[in-house]
Design a protein around this nucleic acid. Sequence first.
DNA 1: GTCGTTGTGACTAACGTACGTCAAAAAAAA
DNA 2: TTTTTTTTGACGTACGTTAGTCACAACGAC
Lengths: 341, 341
Amino acid sequence: MRATIHDVAREADVSLSTVDRVLNGRAGVRKATVTRVNDAIARLGYQRNVEAANLAKKRLYRFVVLIPDGPNAFMQSLRDGLAALGPLLAPDRIELQALAIPAFDAAALATRLDGIAPGTVDGVAMVATEGRAVSEAVARLQAQNVPVVTLVSDLPGSARARFIGIDNVAAGRTAAGLLGRFCEKTPQKLAVIAGSMLVRDHVERRLGFEQVIRTEYPHLEILPTLEGRDDAAVVHQGLQALLAAHPDIGGIYSLGAGNRGLIRALDGARHTPRPAIVVHELTPHTREALISGLFDAAINQDPARELRAVVAVLRALVDRAPIDPIIERIGVEVFLRDNLA
Amino acid sequence: MRATIHDVAREADVSLSTVDRVLNGRAGVRKATVTRVNDAIARLGYQRNVEAANLAKKRLYRFVVLIPDGPNAFMQSLRDGLAALGPLLAPDRIELQALAIPAFDAAALATRLDGIAPGTVDGVAMVATEGRAVSEAVARLQAQNVPVVTLVSDLPGSARARFIGIDNVAAGRTAAGLLGRFCEKTPQKLAVIAGSMLVRDHVERRLGFEQVIRTEYPHLEILPTLEGRDDAAVVHQGLQALLAAHPDIGGIYSLGAGNRGLIRALDGARHTPRPAIVVHELTPHTREALISGLFDAAINQDPARELRAVVAVLRALVDRAPIDPIIERIGVEVFLRDNLA
DNA sequence: GTCGTTGTGACTAACGTACGTCAAAAAAAA
DNA sequence: TTTTTTTTGACGTACGTTAGTCACAACGAC
């Protein structure tokens, strides 16, 4: 049988009320008494029964999740997953509110964050775009005791409590390891397509990618990064030009979205031999391109799992409970045409 | 505000007691009244507050996990993970009991299962070895309302409620896709090392592997599977003989354990060019071999995550609650030397 | 000494459910 | 109809915690 506050009260030789005052940080308890109670708690290994506490408090967890708007298929699946998750969380008294924000727009994100009324929300998660204003808005929220976590793309150097997402440097290194082995062993060029260098996940993926290519595959030359803004039309145009300018492109790493543009550009240019291609995220389009053999590998993060991790972490943060490192950890999955589910 | 049993009672125009009888399947309620109550529940969208119910019931979840004994590093990490998980689950009134069983021994497993007293355990998880006696023991437990889930290795055709683990066919296909691309394009042979064909995960991995190699890489010839019983010494000896007999082995897929034996055999035989090697599970030894460049890829499943999934699924099963498909899903991770954490 | 302040204890009503008892009502059987 | 059986209602207590009220000390300041 677990110890209860009654046991603690008896052990510390104080009343129930005093234990409650200590436990919930209420005023009116002498320092010496606080120590007595805490000692008793430690001695008994008392742990508050969160279920009973929540029942008594009628606690409600109100979380806001900010996800970029637009045609990005991954963000779309994140939004869909959020909508699907809502009903599942009702029994735990967790309410999720989705908020759409313009992609790659730090100012808009900061404005949205500042628009969150402190009393109405218990935690915030966001796919971050880097910017001073954003970091400051995060700091304000945290100061108001509203925990903020970043999702998919981090905001390093800010006050955000946690980052939920894959290790993007490792993802970039994985892409490089695969592409390095898939490419012929003769000198050739690699194209890198990113969305924007304003989002940290893209920056980190490119960093990891370059680390490995430079040190392990020096015969491969990395071309300047094409910024496609996760937009198929922009990617299409940019890549078309790149392929025309460099007939010896042997591999392509697409570390952002807009892969429809990549597919179209390759369909247009009859490049032989076909370059090896590693992309990010399993979406209907990338899946199809894997099956047809156009893409060689897709590095995937599971959005549904990330959302569950966000909820678990935010909950632990508001409860000031320890965070399970396993729940928090998001794995990098590699899909080839051969192992598509 | 969520509906409570009070609301349901009012809506159905019956007393609290009757709602309780219906909800908990107690006898003494007319069929017509049951329908009235259930209609009210549906109309209000009532969901039982599990926390309050558990509080009232002083519910305790007692789960038993059966994990193979022996030097297998992956099973060792499962056992370690289980021990570490125990304290984390105490607040949720979940008790985990680890039970070691001999590896690849269906009879011993069945005996252990039969030795579980029905009243003392609420759920069972096991790393299964296939066998008729095992399936029958599982059926008996399930019949006694003790849910059984398989972990890591499945027991298809049995009454087990769920399987928690990776898609092993997909894992084998992944290995084949990688090895096919890593190997030279000239005809050569592939060695496959398994633990035993008595465990389903190994069977399925080999199946997936052969599917892909046969159809996509017909120039690669798969040698008869070496059964190493997850034992380094057996693997060492067997592989040594195999390498001596076939100087043209260009790739090795080790889908079980005992990789220390694989490493030793390769260190002994100075095989050039070094064969491409894909193994399973990140352990200290496979990690080291990846870094040194001896292994090319390791396919990993996260044991800690699997254990958490087991607990979540067993809990949902005893509560007859819906199972979140995302929690249940275990991803296949691919590690190259480049993306080791 | 009286005053206000601070620390403490005793008590109570919730939160939503489980589960028991007992009596009353309704339905079925005699 | 009466008797028996089945069905239903009313009520109480419990689970562990929160959060409030009220009373009464002990303490120092004046």
